[in-house]
Amino acid sequence: MRYAFHRFHFTGQRENEEVIEVIHRHWLNITLQFLMLFFFTAVTLGVMFILPFFFPVLLGAYTVSLFHFVENTFFLCIWIFSFLIWIDYYFDVWIITNERIVNIEQKGLFNRYISELNFRNIQDVATVVEGIVPTMFNFGEVSVQTAAEQERFLFHMVPDPYRIKDIIMKLSEQTKGNLQ
């Protein structure tokens, strides 16, 4: 795996292929998932500090060590789960290069789905930003109509979809212009 420290590189990248844009889902998506974890962390911390005031038996001779062990186990599970959420977010990515669009979907730890779309197969690009929250936070869907086997390529919940549409259209026109 040779790649520079700060430059983007992905598995299957061709020799002269240049990564132009790397797109993850909007940060709101992972924040909502982490809110649940924050809640459980807050509950665990609350239990750790507040519960002994109401139930002094938890600070008893042998219950205190059991209490701390259970708390520590909760924190360990929260830590592992938070990274599983982050992996699911971070490794779901759309990569726009100067040759193609690569869609990588990470579903859990053991399922990875990769598809690619060459710019010469692009027929149409559409953007949908629907609702108050997507409008305020500027995220939405970019739908790419193709002439390939997979008829529609979908960017789901991506930030600044209008800019992404412009990039794809520009690269598609450049590719088709080079072929003529």
Binding site: A4, F5, R7, H9, F10, V22, L76, I87, F91, L109
Partner: peptide, 21 residues
């Protein structure tokens, strides 16, 4: 089991990260 899950997480981080940093 904890160790196994951690190793899977580390494997995915090193195998599929787009930037080395």
């Amino acid at each position: 089991c904890y160790i196994a899950v951690a190793l899977f997480i580390l494997f995915h981080i090193f195998r599929y990260s787009l930037k080395r940093s």
